[in-house]
């Protein structure tokens, strides 16, 4: 499997920092930003395959960010991440084109698995697979 590029968006700096480090040790090309605005600007400059997006963030929240990402890069796969398991935001996220919906705290292996699935789907939709 190709190496894929991941963007993690979370306002919780400790979480962000740690997960970035852990993914890097697993040889994944990962970048972390701590707000929706930053995420939107960074995807303009660089290519990513999968975005891990926290739902609840100050400023631009996850749902809004997702909507903007999908406008800019419809093929970019997004995995929603939240501490809040409300059915509505989950359904809303899926309707807006998120790949999946994962509840915090999540085991890293589980998340990795989801990322791989998302990447595969991206490859399929790009017609490369």
């Amino acid at each position: 499997m190709d190496k894929f590029k991941v963007l993690v968006v979370d306002d919780e700096e400790d979480f962000l920092e740690t997960i970035v480090k852990r993914l890097q040790t697993r040889k994944i090309d990962v970048t972390g930003v701590d707000s929706g605005i930053k995420a939107l600007s960074i995807i303009d400059d660089r290519d990513f395959d999968v975005v891990i997006l926290d739902v609840k963030m100050p400023g631009l929240d996850g749902i809004e960010t997702l909507r903007e990402i999908k406008k800019k890069k419809p093929l970019l796969e997004v995995i929603m991440l939240t501490g809040h398991a409300s059915v509505e935001s989950g359904i809303q996220g899926m309707q807006l084109g998120a790949f999946d919906y994962v509840m915090k705290p999540v085991a890293l292996d589980e998340l990795l698995e989801k990322m791989r699935q998302a990447y595969e789907r991206k490859l399929i939709s790009e017609g490369k697979a």
Binding site: E12, D14, F15, T18, T82, G83, K104, V106, L108
Partner: peptide
């Protein structure tokens, strides 16, 4: 649950 899940996630990651 949400408020606890976030720090829990950090602890888990750490």
């Amino acid at each position: 649950a949400h408020e606890i899940n976030n720090p829990l996630a950090v602890i888990g990651e750490k």
